[in-house]
Design a binder for these strands. Structure first.
Lengths: 128, 128
DNA sequence: TTAAGTGTACCATGCGACATAGTACGCTGT
DNA sequence: ACAGCGTACTATGTCGCATGGTACACTTAA
């Protein structure tokens, strides 16, 4: 389904969340589609079931998926998702932070902006 | 000199590094200027000297500051800094990551781009 | 009804990064 | 000589993360 980077600073359950968000928001996984069970996915990506469950629990809290007890976990209707203001603020700050890191490396504002624009445009095709 | 956010996920020594990088790259601290001693700064911001030293050590490794044994720590000539390709790669990935987080929140590509542009332009005044 | 599969809830353990506390040494400038 | 500086080292505690294991309630299909 996807690959993990065990060397990453990002925790495993966060990587699972991001990978699933990517698949959901790009439409690779459609609304109503069944996700692998906690146990199955944990075997697929070779991590502990508790770790997968933590990712699922958080994804459900954020509205990306929903669960029916005893049945399984499914992709939610993402058009219904409305951004949590705190998450939005966090994402803006992360963006600002990353941009500043480019400037810290000695790049001019123009160079950093050019890099940012390139990255942004590369994402255009996958969304909407 | 600056404030820390103890609630942040970012570690203290990283916050110290980023704060100093900001002051250095914006020219608030000039090349050759003396920085507070490890002990002084640790008292100012109320953290352990070891934590400040860790930040200084890493800043020196990256070329932002230099130390003269028994004398003190000083701001380096930032024009000499050449970006470590790995740091550049990391910053690019962080930028991409943050931008994707905006898209995950349900924003259209156009909306996310607009937010990114605003953030970028707000930084223009402080650099170069 | 039974069995398998599902989500879910615990608890205990180990690990690594981080921050702290304390001590100590060598260097430099006055 | 002394004060201030960077530096090194050990030890301790905390926290988040990941793992291993057990258990329970639910649903679906045989």
């Amino acid at each position: 389904m996807f690959q993990l980077d065990l060397k990453s600073r990002k925790s495993i359950y966060e990587q699972v969340m991001d990978n699933l968000k990517e698949l959901i928001m790009t439409g690779t996984l459609s609304a109503g589609e069944k996700l692998p069970s906690v146990r199955d996915l944990s075997k697929q990506i070779t991590v502990n079931p508790n770790t997968v469950q933590k990712a699922y629990r958080e994804l459900e809290r954020q509205g990306y998926i929903y669960t029916t007890t005893g049945v399984g976990t499914f992709v939610a209707d993402t058009s219904q998702i409305q951004a949590d203001p705190r998450d939005l603020k966090a994402a803006r700050e992360a963006l600002d932070e990353a941009f500043r890191q480019l400037l810290y490396l000695g790049l001019t504002h123009e160079e950093a902006k050019e890099i940012a624009m390139t990255i942004i445009e590369e994402r255009r095709q996958d969304y909407d």
